[in-house]
Amino acid sequence: MKKSIIILLLITSVVITSCTSTAPVLKSVAYKGMYDEKPLVALIMPPINRSTNIDAKEYFHSTIYTPIADAGYYVIPPFLSMEIMKKESAFDAELFINSPLNKFSEVFGADIAVFTIIHKWDKSSIGSNVSVEIEYIIKSTRTNEVLYTRRGEIKYDTSVSTGLGGIGGLVANLAVSAANTAAAKYVDVARICNYYILKDLPAGKYSQNNGTDGALFAGANKFKVNLSAQ
């Protein structure tokens, strides 16, 4: 599945419509706190939904775990942690984003808390275009410092022409699975947004790139991008 996403991302027409004009910086500089603290254990906080789409929270909540694990981090089991957070009346991440996080270190053993703010989730009237504005803030549970933040405006065209062969066929296959239900299609959109923004995450302990990727250039921390499956 992930391979398909990577292929999809590679062959999609990616148009950076705007990005900061500053000179590129190394990941070790852009995310210095991550490289200094070397966090291992990540706790996913329930997404903060400031959009008008009530389902957007679940689209993102169900798709944020895998890219963080794939980046080499230990992710606190999402359903188990969600259950405990609900029981402890801690399920509203808005309450914690500007508060001390040391309790999450004590209870969960977390080094970092991953906050997601969905600023916008709009779909076109025919449902093929989705416009998302999403922000990720990763904070240290020990120092409360922001270690990683990116905010992106992503416009995604979910319509895919059928009958494609070769590599394009893979896109069609992904689209067929996604087109089973509208919800499945939007889960795919959230998954692609998550992968796109979190691909800059410094490689964690379990990644083969751990300790070496700081020499790569970081992506812009604020960006706009158009993604299309065609």
């Binding site: 992930k2 391979k3 169900s62 798709t63 895998t66 694990a69 080499g72 998954r191």
Partner: peptide
């Protein structure tokens, strides 16, 4: 290419 495989976990 990825650390793990997830099948249809996300859906």
């Amino acid at each position: 290419t990825n650390l793990y495989t997830w099948n249809k976990y996300e859906n």
